[in-house]
Amino acid sequence: MTAASSENNVSGLSADIALSMKNVAVERGGRTIWSGADFDVPTGSFTAIIGPNGAGKSTTAGLVLGQIPPSNGTITVLGAPPARGNERIGLVPQNHTLDQAGSIVCRDVVGLGLIGTKWGASIRTRSIAADVDKVLAEVDATRFAYKRFGEVSGGQQQRVTIAQALIINPDMLVLDEPLAGLDLQGQVEIVELVHRINRERGVTVLFVTHDLNPLLAHIDSLIYILDGRPFFGKPDDVVNAGLLTRLYSTPVQVLRTDEGCIFTRTE
């Protein structure tokens, strides 16, 4: 028996569950945001977290990261209770604009994900530089690695921040609205990149978005927050006009094509 699986057995979970919620509720400012979360997210899955604005998607990410405590129930993340500073989770936060990073080069933004948590003066090691170069190549950012972060496009910046999240070789990747501010082409590219990372690394991806469309062809499962309660499901079960109409409170049509399905809001 490996160390990892015995560790997981202690918490009563098998290694193939990355995130488990048991009757979880969460409050912010004295108000219940959502409650009754009861599901397991499989390890290595590409899971979307969807819901209208203010439904509690970012709050869900905060719970997983240990930034917000649940007001009820039990959460297990990668076999342990959620905790701040979990080295096994990579994060791309909402509105990750890095206003002050404009002056440094993309490569240093990525490097900070690794050395920015350490005390002391910069130690130059070959392996750190090699790791940074490798992950830059993985997200296809080598071309602009030495450009200042403030001088590259929004999509390129998003590749860099994803590389920064990956530099610690996480077992879970949490992205909060990474498509915000990108044009359609840029959205598709980021989703395809995250999908490829998910497959190649086997990393569990939690992808927060208020628009499911660009993700539909790629996700394995999704958490949807409906009327103050998160549910877990497979895309085929969830993507039907009735449910989506309730989710967005506007009439939704679902169109199935050979390439998958898309839905449109008829407003």
């Binding site: 930034q67 701040r84 990750h96 002050q100 948590t117 002391g120 003066a121 910069s122």
Partner: peptide
């Protein structure tokens, strides 16, 4: 500045991720 420099830089440009990492 030598001791805190790298963490300070991380906090300055990327406060949310820095906080999430326990800095």
């Amino acid at each position: 500045m030598v001791i805190t420099g790298r963490q300070l830089m991380f906090c300055s440009i990327d406060p949310e991720v820095a906080a999430a990492k326990g800095i």
